[in-house]
Nucleic acid binder design. Structure first.
Lengths: 336, 336
DNA sequence: ATGAAAGCGCTAACAC
DNA sequence: GTGTTAGCGCTTTCAT
């Protein structure tokens, strides 16, 4: 048994044909005669040959691999989106690699990964990519392909697939209003985030539609993390005058927020109605079960990959594709 | 501006040296004269050259990239382990790619990825790898490097870094006993999983030590998912005689379990004490806050990468490295 | 210390 | 339909 991996040449020799023919038989079976194909396939079996993608990619300048950039692998919300991407990708014969954008230098390394033809491009679930990535990937001649999913970045011509965040936020507030609430506060996501802005805009829009005041002191700052929800809970408890309902920009913060209140004897929904955003898996099993806005996560993943593939192949794509959100009514919000 | 990425040759020309020298200046700065190095570096700047890893790896037969296999990206538990791997890896100049083992054909594709020199090897957080991967990666001459973290696979000579699952389980049960409990049940993880077995063994050991009976009907079957926790909750509610305490094999199931009971008017810890395993982020903010066994997740990630690097470089490694677990006492278990 | 030349394994262009 | 040739971009002997 040879020490090294067999190469096309070994197969060629075993099959009694040329290396080029082996390559053709494997990549374009139609371009080769029935008989040769069989000979080659048999030789492949015999030798235990596996194509060296490295060499293939170096030649073809394409890799059938794609990198997904996630702002926070810890947030379970993303896993379903990744699953969606994966299922579309595997149908197309693509390998999906996931990477967190937060580790120091992580984004940079990944970008090099793509720039080096080790992956065909990126799907970013993080709208705040380092400028270096944005500039070198924003499409165009010979540039790596980039697509945003969930989040996005205004101004650049980068295609994005997103949820209707503003509409979802309106749904949340409308629900609260329909329950008889009028004193409604909001816990924001991180500053400078497109989702934060869109959800806040939806909140304001719905409030305005009903002539409800948006009180400065009822707008709390968060950053989508559990801890920031806890912190917001503390601030809420100190409020001179408290709202009777809160629309929280995501589920994770809601858990921190509700639990902090619970620790101080304030119960949701008894003392405060809460609607959140995302509908991650635990939302249904939190106590109280969370009323929240659901986004079709698997679908968006699939759509993102489809968009990526189109863009990579040079087809024109819709620049913005928006998927609808729906409200899931459970226990955390009740009549005023 | 040229249409294509600059190559070593472009840099060589700009610097007035040969391609070989450029390569040397970049890879082994010491092997080149001060003056040339400066010239080359300047030329690199000018041309905007970035090394093409693909070509480099094809030549060097090493990639500085590693793939991490995760059984379930949705379980937040893994994200901290990945973070640990990432921090150790980035210090070593490695790129970390994560992949879910569940998508159809996913494992296979990933293995090809490695077999093709597109990554140096794998760290698997999944003990139940397809046989094809195990056999082609189980180390040895020219074989891709594989290391297990958290989970493992007995029999093969694959190095693994793990938590003291059995000890952690004992801690959990001891705690319950110290609270005065004697009627203690257990919710298992998935069948055929090493963690399931180890945690169950720890449970039995602690029970035996105190002369407590292990009742068949108090051993429920789960699979580490939220849903299986819900299902177990239903079964628990139907029990003719109920235990007064439960040790659940992970947090995720605990959420499903506790919430299902809550829906039926059975409250934790009022009516039932619960201790779980993992201490994922939400555990502290669940209602009730979960008493659970914590594992040093970041550390295990770092240790796993260190082990990987050693193994990849041909050094001998401890075959089994075990990290201690600690009990985090919160609200979900109280005196009998 | 540097350059010339060979070659990693594969595929695309061209000839037959 | 198949073989020959060249070359993807890099690194690494081997000379000098």
């Amino acid at each position: 048994m040879p020490n090294r991996q067999p190469t096309v040449r070994d197969v060629a020799q075993a099959a009694g044909v040329s290396a080029a023919t082996v390559s053709r038989a494997l990549s374009f079976p139609d371009k080769v005669s029935e008989a040769t194909r069989i000979k080659v396939l048999r030789a492949v079996e015999e030798t235990g040959y596996v194509v060296n993608q490295l060499a293939r990619n170096l030649r073809r300048r394409t890799t059938s691999a794609i990198v997904v950039l996630v702002p926070n692998l810890g947030n379970q919300f993303f896993s379903h989106i990744i699953a969606g991407i994966e299922s579309a990708a595997s149908r197309a014969g693509y390998t999906v690699l996931v990477s967190d954008t937060r580790p120091p230098g992580g984004g940079e390394m990944l970008m090099d990964f793509v720039r080096n033809n080790r992956a065909d491009g990126l799907i970013s679930l993080d709208g705040n990519l380092p400028g270096s990535i944005l500039s070198s990937a924003s499409g165009g001649r010979g540039r790596p392909t980039l697509v945003f999913a969930c989040e996005w970045h205004d101004g650049l011509g980068v295609p994005s697939v997103r949820f209707d965040n503003e509409g979802g936020a309106e749904l949340a507030v409308e629900h609260l209003v329909s329950l008889g609430h009028s004193r409604i506060g909001h816990l924001l996501g991180p500053p400078g985030n497109v989702l934060t802005d869109a959800r806040f805009a939806g909140y304001r829009r719905a409030m305005a539609r009903h002539g409800l005041p948006v009180r400065e002191d009822w707008i709390l700052q968060g950053d989508f993390t559990l801890d920031s929800g806890v912190q917001a809970g503390r601030e809420w408890l100190e409020l001179a005058e408290r709202p009777r309902a809160m629309f929280l920009a995501n589920d994770e913060m809601a858990f921190g927020f509700i639990s902090e209140l619970h620790g101080k004897g304030v119960e949701v929904p008894r003392d405060l109605s809460v609607v959140a955003f995302d509908d991650i898996d635990i939302a249904e099993r939190y106590i109280p079960a969370l009323t929240t806005v659901r986004q079709p996560r698997h679908e968006i993943g699939e759509a993102a990959f489809a968009t990526f593939l189109k863009a990579f192949n040079g087809a024109t794509t819709e620049l913005i594709r928006t998927l609808p959100a729906t409200l899931i009514v459970r226990d955390s919000a009740r009549p005023a």
